[in-house]
Design a protein around this nucleic acid. Structure first.
Lengths: 189, 189
DNA sequence: CAAAATATGGAGGTCATCTCCATTTGTCAA
DNA sequence: TTGACAAATGGAGATGACCTCCATATTTTG
């Protein structure tokens, strides 16, 4: 896919700084209040450098997102290796809520970008989708979960949770969504 | 809340034209590809007029959204009056998916704006939330639905459906989400 | 170490957004 | 009807964010 050409040392360094700074801003939730040019200065590089590395806000977001997704996928695999399938799925989904709760701004920012022009981020989230699909498939295999609903539905529900992050009773409602999904998955009819 | 001052005749006419044109553009999904000034010309008014009526894209979206929400609420009330509670809820949710499917561009546009700065639209969707809450409450009353999950969770799931509108297998997955939610609601444990 | 390749930064062009106000249109009382 | 006041209009132009471009600097290579 991405035939990563070896990046020059300083270029790599700047790229890393940009991503790190971006994650920071994302997390604070200030990403959209900030002029893109100013972001370059904040990161200590020229605007040209910023734009060469990340032509748009979306590409930058994708880079940050990649790290998130990788971490989540690791967690999924680890759970799958150490717990019964149904429990792994439940634990993972509950954990997702914790994770989103802990990274409010980031979740909101990503949700916004996701809804906007889904192309860029959709690609980045492919791995996450795969991980969830695997978790569900394993649970189906165990007979713990019905086989007539697509794993994509679980993704959708998660997406709703992330996107609605600013609702007053978010945490309780998010937990309820997971409860509904898990209970709904359990009964074959 | 909104102490609607009586609008002058021509102002009202322009306002209506703007909303009508906006709904049209929304539905075509071209809302974000269009310069806001050009939208004014498309609607046949000056930019000043556009901005006086709708200072931002969001306020315009909210106006369109209002109509949608009103229609949906009517439907909810009608179902609630003519069907058993559990069935009314199920029919309403299934119908939501149809509705979103039929108004692709609009759904996507609203989802985007919703995620962005939720303030404006969140206010507009209060009525919809109330309608869903009523449907759920009635079903709980009937004993057809568990009472330990908040109606907000259903809203969240719907939100996820709307926001993820561009996924390849959207329709099937959306139906699955509804299935999960309904089945999840059914079992008290 | 020289030359080639690669990356940098920020000045300035471009273009969407929004403001402002001279003019037009609607309202209402006499 | 008409005059006078209020409300609304529209579009020219200011503003400022986004992005390009290239002379200069840095890294790598032979």
């Amino acid at each position: 896919m991405t035939a990563d050409k070896p990046l020059r040392a300083d270029a790599q360094r700047n790229r890393d700084v940009l991503i790190a700074k971006a994650r920071e801003i994302f997390d604070a939730g200030d990403f959209f209040d900030l002029r893109f040019d100013d972001f370059a200065r904040l990161a200590g590089v020229g605007t040209g450098t910023l734009y060469r590395h990340f032509p748009t806000r979306e590409t930058l977001a994708e880079a940050v997102y990649h790290g998130e997704v990788a971490a989540l996928c690791d967690r999924a695999r680890q759970l799958q290796a150490t717990l019964p399938a149904a429990e792994a799925l439940a634990t993972f989904l509950r954990g997702m809520v914790d994770h989103i709760a802990a990274h409010e701004g980031l979740a909101r920012t990503l949700a916004t970008l996701m809804a906007d022009r889904s192309g860029a981020l959709a690609e980045g989230s492919w791995a996450l989708e795969q991980a969830v699909t695997d978790l569900v498939a394993a649970a189906v295999q165990d007979g713990a979960v019905r086989d007539d609903v697509d794993a994509g539905a679980v993704l959708m529900a998660l997406h709703g949770i992330g996107a609605a992050h600013d609702r007053p009773g978010w945490r309780a409602e998010a937990d309820d969504v997971i409860t509904l999904v898990l209970d709904g998955l359990r009964r074959p009819l």
